[in-house]
Design a protein around this nucleic acid. Structure first.
Length: 111
DNA sequence: ACCCTGACGCGTC
DNA sequence: GGACGCGCCAGGG
């Protein structure tokens, strides 16, 4: 047992794993869906731990602005936008275009 | 064992 | 309308 926090870490991982291909979501949306009082911050920390998780597409998680904030955490800064564009998500200047269109809200699409 | 920093978001000034 | 601070947790040096 590492710690109890791993519990909510796992919660975040589950949701991220469920993000459909070609869609993106925001840290806040996940936090809101999980009801994390601390907010998006915890989601961010959780993503940090998602490094070992192979099934966690962290590249589909952006901030509320649609900006690829965590791109620098990948093997290569370009990897995130490449992965997204590969899935059909248009990214320009580290920002997701048509963010509302490709936005996938867990609490809305996930019951 | 302590100090620091870090994938966010929102309310206020 | 822009800038700043707060809240919260964990892992690393």
């Amino acid at each position: 047992m590492k710690s109890k926090s791993e519990n909510y870490f796992d919660q975040v991982f589950q949701v991220v794993k469920l993000i459909p291909r070609g869609k993106v979501t925001s840290y806040g949306a996940i936090a809101n869906y999980l009801g994390l009082k601390s907010g998006a911050r915890m989601v961010g920390y959780a993503m940090n731990a998602s490094h070992g998780e192979k099934d966690v597409p962290a590249h589909r998680v952006v901030n509320r602005n649609g900006v690829l904030t965590g791109k620098h955490h990948f093997s290569s800064p370009k990897e995130m936008e490449e992965l997204l564009e590969k899935e059909g998500v248009v990214v320009e200047d580290d920002q997701v275009l048509d963010f509302e269109t490709v936005f996938w809200d867990p609490s809305k699409y996930l019951l």
